[in-house]
Write a protein that binds this DNA or RNA. Structure first.
Lengths: 153, 153
DNA sequence: ACGATTTTGACAATCGTTCTCAGCGGGTCG
DNA sequence: CGACCCGCTGAGAACGATTGTCAAAATCGT
């Protein structure tokens, strides 16, 4: 237990999403602008996680220049809308990835860095189960395994 | 380059910890200063995760003033040494907590940060098995589960 | 096409974290 | 005991990611 209080306090504003479809109220009406399309397309062009800045860079190289602030805003919306996954890298940067990629984990050699991609239905099931058991929904997770590969032992 | 690489690209270093005592190399010789003692004690005074700034604040209130930079440095060392757990809050801040003896993982609410500690013999077994299967030894791993807690759904 | 609204983008402002560097202090050696 | 070496500290500058600001540009409904 330990009433862990929310680290982030006043973040209410970013939570705009969720409007029940029975609510006749305002319709956010996301506009299909060139920039938004560009970002969405960019997101579909790679499988791994990338930082907002890398994505911004990628867009620039593609010739579809989009303001950095706009990239941030768009990514945030997409993430809120659940269209892309967002998590934080080890050094605190927000990183994004198109939502539908096949999910797998990495087995990394501590010494030479050799990486093997592994899948684990068992783990997926376990995490979902554990989460459900505690009443958590919309579950996602990160898992990485470290070890010393055969060549480095 | 390219190819799916983990969010934490070449970040295997964070796992540095473990300074084997057989290393004949330079011995950092950590000095037992007032500040370090203060930080360690402070870490032992609470159970949940706190940010470096909160810890700094806490020390100040205790009368054991320690420079912010020193707090950061010390927390980092403790984390590297594996004496405390460090992870990232949803908004990218580094948060720390005294390391509990038992190995477990965290089920964190994406929205309010509420955290539940969970254990999973199954996962432990699975990771070891997968690693062994690929010939990796000295296995360790990191796993975090994210979701939306009952109160935030 | 026209006014209402959203969005955008350049840039300033935040804010957590790290770097710099002069001064301090613990430990050691003579 | 005193000089010295070197890690340690603190204050503030520097940094880098992210967010806020606001006038100009793009869209939408009519």
């Amino acid at each position: 237990m330990t009433s862990t209080e929310p680290p982030t306090t006043d973040r209410a504003d970013q939570q705009t999403a969720h409007q029940t479809d029975q609510e006749p109220a305002a319709k956010p009406a996301l506009r299909p602008t060139r920039q938004r399309r560009a970002v969405s397309e960019a997101m579909a062009s790679f499988e791994d996680f990338r930082s907002a800045q890398e994505i911004h860079e990628l867009l620039r190289n593609r010739g579809e220049a989009v303001g950095l602030a706009t990239v941030y805003r768009t990514l945030q919306r997409l993430a809120d809308a659940g269209e892309i996954d967002m998590l934080r890298s080890e050094d605190g940067e927000a990183i994004y990835r198109a939502c539908s990629t096949t999910h797998h984990h990495h087995l990394v050699c501590r010494s030479c860095g050799r990486t093997v991609e592994v899948e684990g239905p068992a783990v997926e099931r376990w995490t979902s189960a554990i989460a459900a058991e505690h009443g958590y929904g919309e579950v996602s997770h990160t898992l990485e395994i470290f070890g010393t590969c055969p060549a480095c032992r």
